[in-house]
Design a protein around this nucleic acid. Structure first.
Lengths: 335, 335
DNA sequence: AGGGCTTTCCAAAACGTTTTGGATGGCGTT
DNA sequence: AACGCCATCCAAAACGTTTTGGAAAGCCCT
């Protein structure tokens, strides 16, 4: 049980020496270090994590807070993200813990419990919003955190994000080059920064190319895309292309298009974002854009560790390019 | 910082009394208890979790080990499952931590680290296999654990599972009632218990109804479903219905059917399992089956807590009914 | 020989909580 | 007045580790 003590006793050494031998201090003679390591291995010794955490004041835990809105939850991205974050953290002996927190008046309570109870060494904030009280609270409390996504929050903080603005700007120009003159955008709720940025890219490119651009905003899931597309398709002048904030919305939109008696890829081109697994297998296959999610997770983990080590958040900001994936839903050129 | 001590000092009480007051022992006069509670609230006191864990020998953590196979990872189910497990655990002051472990020779290392290092109070095992070394190890070590899914493992252990056997049996009879005589089954790798059970249900019903039944096994994702369906459709006599182990496989199969020039729901009926979000928005909408995943998560959490409390695993087994969801891919009756 | 330096080891304190085993004083009972 | 009992409180130990501040012994140099 009391492992370090037992180990020391059987070796005829002090607890101190055993501990230092295991941690690789130069303090210990090479011969004894090897003896200790062998004995520890043989006894299957694993340091008691609670004791080490208490003593060192570190939990060796990084916590990711999930925005657990019932309908919004099922985004395949997050599980891949968690996998890569967890893997990277494990290399450093850290664990990843998960907490669900509903956005709303009590959202900050979850964060306060984490911070005040010292239940974690760093927090990973996802699905950032343009006005985000969480960033304010964490910054004020001086607690290490990393965000996936940007925000209007003015003070410096560590984040990783995809360049959604450029990606959607680029996608519009791509559609324009194919001959589209009337492009609709199915936007996600613009309180979310990612949605705002994608919409901005869309708007900027539309102006630049002198296109007729219409925007409908709805939830970032299949049902939202379905409703938004239905609205756009009920107008007298139909768009010839739909640029959707997410693949889920795009799948919903494809259904609305079919129900209207039109054919995706022939009558209306459509593009999503995320490259979820189902996107490659829809009918027709959905053109989309992809953020390297595994790499993003690794970077988030590394940044969290860096922040725990006291790194300046100013040095920990990263905006990654988004890759365009052409598929059949893009259709042929039309001129 | 040293909060309990500070709190005691400002109150003019001993650490013992403050601690016992906060924990609600009858030991403390009502008046002082209230005084202590008020002061703790005012000071925003949160017990240091590492210290309490060390002293009580409990981590207040439950760990879910994710089978992190790169391609297999993106199953939307898991994120919803984690959300509901985490929520239920939080009600009891427990945290949910996540660890990724690749199946393979080193898989058990992850479990050993958790158990020997006392990093968690209970483990949740998912994606059980018929031969599952993890259940053997955890049972032998006497460590509290709960499984999502069954196994051939002979000793008693706590689990929640869906009744996939009955569900697939029922689905075959449903297809037979619609006039189908030649039904194919796209099976997931039968090392996984869920895949084996679904296949068994399919086989039992096929025999019972005297149907021609063919089975192809492949990975439980879109690509696997695509390959498996392609194989079945390359035969001289085509099946008129495909029963797929998962929705992801079904989406892959639908693509193979389209490429073969056939129409899903008219030429070939198709049924999946899981009711992933994309299923309702495929073309045609995918008939499927659904396990109440939020309820399952809650039960898993409750069982984990019960096992920590020393409950007998024999009393903690639950097999839930799966609900059939009819959609357009089921097609019309054909006689 | 004596002083300083290195190498190797260790006793004890500290982390913040929970729990054990009383101590104290007031009250009622005999 | 002596005794026991109850209500209320507390000092100290314990959990298992890391870290501080040396101690002891051997060596080299003057």
């Amino acid at each position: 049980m009391s492992s370090l003590r037992v180990l020391a006793q059987t070796l005829g050494l002090s607890i101190t020496t055993v501990s230092r031998a295991l941690d690789g201090y130069g303090d210990v003679a090479l011969a004894t270090r090897e003896r200790v390591l062998a004995a520890a291995e043989a006894a299957g010794y694993r340091p008691n994590s609670a004791a080490r955490r208490l003593r060192r004041g570190l939990t060796e835990i990084v916590t990711m807070v999930l925005p657990a809105e019932p309908g919004h939850f099922n985004e395949p991205l997050y599980i891949e993200l968690m996998g890569s974050i967890g893997e990277r953290l494990a290399e450093q002996g850290y664990d990843l813990t998960l907490i669900a927190a509903l956005p709303g008046p009590d959202e900050l309570k979850t964060y306060r419990r984490l911070v005040d109870g010292r239940r974690t060494d760093a927090i990973i904030v996802v699905r950032t919003r343009r006005e985000d009280a969480r960033l304010r609270y964490l910054t004020d409390s001086g607690f290490p955190f990393v965000a996936m996504g940007r925000s209007d929050f003015p003070e410096p903080y560590a984040f990783v994000d995809g360049d959604g603005e450029a990606a959607f700007h680029d996608a519009v120009l791509r559609l324009a080059a194919l001959g589209h003159r009337r492009i609709g955008h199915l936007a996600a709720p613009s309180a979310f920064t990612f949605a705002h940025l994608r919409r901005s890219g869309f708007e900027r490119a539309s102006r630049q190319a002198g296109l007729s651009a219409e925007i409908v905003e709805d939830s970032a899931n299949e049902a939202g895309g379905y409703r938004a597309a239905k609205l756009l398709l009920a107008q007298p002048e139909l768009p010839s292309a739909l640029l959707c904030a997410t693949d889920s919305m795009a799948l919903g939109a494809m259904r609305a298009i079919r129900e209207r008696g039109l054919v995706v890829g022939r009558d209306i081109a459509i593009i999503g974002h995320d490259n979820i697994p189902a996107a490659a297998f829809s009918d027709p296959a959905l053109a989309t854009m992809e953020l390297p999610i595994a790499a993003t997770g690794r970077r988030l983990a590394e940044m969290a560790l860096a922040r725990i080590g006291g790194a300046d958040p100013r040095d920990l900001t990263e905006i990654n390019a988004v890759e365009f994936i052409a598929r059949a839903s893009l259709g042929e050129a039309r001129t």
